[in-house]
Design a protein around this nucleic acid. Structure first.
Length: 302
DNA sequence: AAACCCGCCAACCGCACCGAG
DNA sequence: GCTCGGTGCGGTTGGCGGGTT
């Protein structure tokens, strides 16, 4: 037996909100607050709306200090950084961006930012030495744990069915104790990395990262293993302990990867936001010519 | 000018979580 | 410990408007 609906769908209005409805809702909440009961609110406010609909309207549109419109480069970086770390936890990401709603960010990601990032993927799949962000790193590029360079295979043009990542190597023994990089805060997860190659299978046009069916978290959010569509290959994704974001340098097309550890004992939210910003801002993330990168992405994928 | 296409975004839907009883 | 109702969240849908053919 399914759940009872939250409201009588036959008697509530659906679709776009009229200005009068907005006014009624806003005035009621400003006067009485939500009362902690959204289900009862529409009746009290004289609205023929579902309580959930009222809540959504308030949170996403009527609430004070809501920011709409263009996202700044800084906001882009924060979104990308957090997405790399925690996936599509939009409410958490929104919490880091004052005035932005989860719905806004989700829409922005799905319609614009994802495509922008897709455009960062290089035309060539030649292996190159990576260019490493330096400001937030205290180790040279030879330190393979932090950033691996990745190899791609053109999709659908050969029998190759996976993406090869370079083997992880253990960090220098003195590294963790001296690093301020948030990605290195959990030493245990680093040293447990096995020095082996990872071949991620392509299945149903999806690259599979982590063990298949590794969705073991209680909320089903699957943050430690994710599927990545081929067209989103710029995200090299997670294995069980690591994630990797690859991008190309907008100036010379050189590819770089940013990666790190992701452990159960250290949630992404433990990362200092400033550190995350610093990491992303040290990449060539910004200053992307969207028109050019779109073109590149198109050429590469089709 | 009309038809069609496509991107954007507000809103909906269903599921999971959580707390009260 | 279980049930139930309310809430929050993420995925998806569908209407609208602008651009293109």
């Amino acid at each position: 037996m399914g759940r009872a609906p939250c409201c009588d769908k036959a008697s509530v209005k659906k679709g776009p909100w009229a200005p009068e409805e907005d006014t009624m809702l806003k005035e009621y909440i400003e006067k009485h607050g939500t009362g902690g009961n959204w289900i009862a609110l529409p009746q009290k406010a004289g609205l023929k709306r579902c309580g959930k609909s009222c809540r959504l309207r308030w949170l996403n549109y009527l609430r004070p200090n809501i920011k709409h419109g263009d996202f700044s480069d800084e906001e882009d970086r924060i979104i990308c950084s957090l997405y790399v770390n925690i996936g599509s936890r939009w409410s958490i990401i929104a919490a880091q961006l004052p005035g932005r709603t989860d719905n806004d960010i989700k829409n922005y990601w799905n319609t614009k930012l994802k495509k922008k990032l897709m455009g960062l993927i290089p035309l060539s799949h030649q292996r190159k030495q990576p260019s490493f962000p330096s400001s937030s790193l205290q180790n040279p590029p030879s330190h393979q744990l932090y950033g691996e360079y990745c190899t791609y295979s053109p999709i659908g043009t050969s029998s190759f069915t996976g993406v090869e990542l370079e083997p992880y190597t253990l960090p220098p023994s003195n590294y963790a104790s001296t690093s301020s990089n948030p990605f290195y805060q959990n030493q245990d997860s680093m040293t447990s990395l096995s020095p082996m190659k990872y071949y991620y299978p392509i299945k149903d046009n999806m690259l599979m990262f982590g063990s298949e069916g590794s969705c073991s978290s209680s909320d089903g959010s699957c943050t430690q293993g994710m599927e990545i569509k081929q067209e989103e290959i710029g995200y090299q994704g997670y294995n069980n302990d690591n994630f990797m974001l690859c991008y190309s340098n907008s100036n010379d097309g050189e590819k770089s990867c940013v990666g790190g550890c992701y452990s159960q004992s250290l949630t992404p939210l433990d990362y200092d936001l400033e550190d995350i910003k610093q990491l992303i801002s040290s990449t060539s993330f910004n200053n992307v010519d969207e028109n050019k990168t779109e073109e590149k992405g198109f050429y590469y994928y089709y």
